[in-house]
Design a protein around this nucleic acid. Structure first.
Lengths: 243, 243
DNA sequence: CGACCGTTTGAATAGGGTCAACAACTGTGG
DNA sequence: CCACAGTTGTTGACCCTATTCAAACGGTCG
């Protein structure tokens, strides 16, 4: 059930909401007002879709609050988590890639707030506000890099190292310091971690259990805290075998 | 040994060399002359590097003739083939991704001819010739898609399916129809295929032997011909197990 | 012709996926 | 407040795929 159409307009959209975000940084107040004027604000409930794979790409989005996971589903129903999106990031930018349909689904990992713009405004924004175009170019470039890194990891690393890398990445991206260590800031299941790293929930469970016994992490239901990032990092860097 | 600096200027660069290529399509003759005027033409011997991973990104390139493989090397020396580049494609476009160094090495799979431009011209070309900017945006987008597809494959498919997919992709990209079937148009070893698909040369060798016995492919030293693309495709689509 | 590179093939091993059963927790409704 | 259903997580046993190790073969090239 895509939530795209069920959004309610928020009464006031303040410039300060987006003024400091990379895509809009340095824009004139008038420009910010123009951008906001075209936006609709949507609330998306946990586990609801912001957009769905294969769906016509009518809008692009900015995540104002919450966490979103981007998921690709294979024809036979297996899911792969492509990435997690944090506050302030753009998502659903199919237009930037010259696509007519979204290549993946975006699911709210927690209750979220997003801004939505009609896709046709993409080229408008890019040409009218060069810094917007430049920033999104960088974003796409960074995501390409990230995807290649992931291909290399999947090709050369053992499962244990991949899971360690995956956790560290999440901890860096969205980690929240607590007494015990770095807490991953949204509900994440063993299944989710498996879908990020190309393994099964069973293997992830076993690894986390072992690591917990070793004092590297603490974990509970849909919750993971990295207690000793440094030692986990060493584990992630351990030599692979094949090649 | 990077070949970047060993190139010799070709006496004449004709507009027709690049006029029909996507990045430059639709440019005025004067613009084409400008673009060519800034280019250096280089010959790169088989197995030589056009540029090397980590090296400062001084230039970007267009492959005029030959085939190039783009390779990432891990800190412990394992190699992963990111993609193959065919004639008419841009490569080494670190500038477009906002990078100061090349993220991978580019190795000539056969003797090649490339054009090279200084990196600083990237933004110049992009702004002065909008169709150039738009095309490269599409290129980067397509490569991102491709990388994500690869991540999904590596996460969900068995080795046999990945190798089948890899071969089919090569056959489509650079295949040359012959009496026997579709020949992959440059020397490619079992090791290369292994580095594309995240497996070992042994496994690739066994698969090719089995497929050959089955009449799906014909292969020899650094040579592969896909005899029955359709049946290979069925194999590639076969159900995966895990998940 | 001899050295080397790419390839083939066999045998042994192990990483991790599959199958199965259960335990712990959350939330719901009576 | 408790019973029950539905998730999510744990753990053991088994087995299979693909890697590892080892050896040998056949073109190719200097």
């Amino acid at each position: 059930m895509p939530a795209s159409l069920s959004g309610e307009a928020v009464t006031q959209l303040d410039r300060s909401l987006i003024a400091e975000l990379p895509p809009f940084q340095g824009l004139e107040p008038a420009a910010l007002d123009h951008v906001l004027g075209e936006a609709r604000s949507l609330r998306v409930a946990k586990d609801a879709a912001i957009f769905e794979q294969e769906e016509e790409a009518k809008n692009f989005f900015l995540l104002l609050d919450g966490h979103v996971r981007v998921v690709k589903t294979t024809p036979d129903g297996q899911q792969v988590i492509v990435r997690y999106i944090s506050c302030g990031e753009l998502l659903g930018i199919a237009q930037a890639l010259g696509l007519k349909a979204y290549p993946a689904s975006a699911i709210a990992a927690v209750d979220c707030v997003v801004l939505a713009w009609p896709g046709r405004l993409w080229s408008d924004f890019s040409t009218r506000y060069p810094s917007f175009g430049a920033d999104t170019y960088r974003t796409v470039g960074a995501r390409l890099q990230e995807a290649h890194t992931r291909v290399v990891e999947m090709s050369t690393e053992q499962v244990e190292q991949r899971v360690a890398h995956g956790l560290l990445r999440l901890a860096n991206q969205t980690g929240k310091k607590t007494q015990e260590g770095v807490l991953i800031d949204f509900p994440i299941s063993r299944q989710d971690i498996a879908e990020m790293t190309g393994t099964t929930l069973h293997t992830v469970s076993r690894l986390l259990s072992a690591w917990e016994a070793d004092g590297l992490v603490r974990s509970g239901r849909q919750k993971v805290t990295v207690v000793e990032p440094h030692r986990l990092f060493l584990l992630a860097g351990g030599r692979a075998r094949k090649g």
